[in-house]
């Protein structure tokens, strides 16, 4: 017990790494977003308290490693009011990784439909944006937007945590849609 407290005091509070210092391009698809505009007050509320549900639709698990890194003391997503939640019913935003496989397509749609509307969707990684190196034929159906509508894309293989965070923010703020 004392060792734990001593360690907590020794390390102090980790410095936050801001998303700005290494931001990466975030692609938006305004055509898809425009018909599902969020009310301004909800958008503002989500900006300060956001619940995220993650679905791995077939990635190589590299993107999961970087999404997990968002919870570490440096990116510390929870410190900004962004939480991962255990149920799609609690979620405001769906983070999807990987090319969507045939076997996962239905589970992905089910999760998306279980969320309260309007549900934001962010596709993470090259695979989620384009199908990546796995292609879009055979057992992999490729890009996420082929299965459910997507609000924001993050490219990168895998994208850096700061880029994922920036994409989440711009999906909530609706930068490109506005």
């Amino acid at each position: 017990m004392w060792q734990i407290l001593r360690q907590a005091v020794r390390i102090g509070i980790c410095p936050k790494s801001s998303a700005r210092e290494e931001s990466e391009p975030v692609l938006m698809s305004p055509a898809e977003v425009s018909d599902r505009q969020l009310q301004a007050d909800l958008r503002a509320a989500l900006g300060r308290a956001l619940s995220i549900r993650v679905v791995d639709a077939g990635s190589c698990n590299g993107c999961e490693l970087e999404i997990n890194a968002l919870s570490n003391p440096f990116y510390n997503m929870e410190g900004e009011g962004i939480h991962f939640v255990a149920s799609p019913r609690h979620a405001d935003l769906l983070l999807v990784t990987g090319p969507v496989t045939h076997n996962m397509a239905q589970a992905l749609v089910d999760t998306w439909q279980a969320m309260p509307a309007p549900a934001l969707v962010v596709a993470v990684g090259d695979c989620g944006c384009t199908g990546g190196i796995f292609g879009e034929e055979g057992a992999s159906r490729g890009r996420v937007s082929a299965v459910i509508p997507v609000d924001a894309h993050v490219s990168g293989c895998p994208p850096r945590p700061s880029a994922i965070l920036a994409a989440i923010r711009s999906a909530v703020q609706g930068v490109a849609g506005a």
Partner: peptide, 30 residues
């Protein structure tokens, strides 16, 4: 659930470039 057909995908790729695919079989063991 994550079956993407990697063995089949290999045969569509150039042997040198397929190393990229091998590095994405499991991202934590790239």
């Amino acid at each position: 659930y994550k079956h993407k057909g990697i063995d089949a995908r290999y045969t569509q790729l150039d042997p040198i470039l397929a190393g990229r695919l091998a590095g994405r079989v499991s991202g934590d063991s790239t």
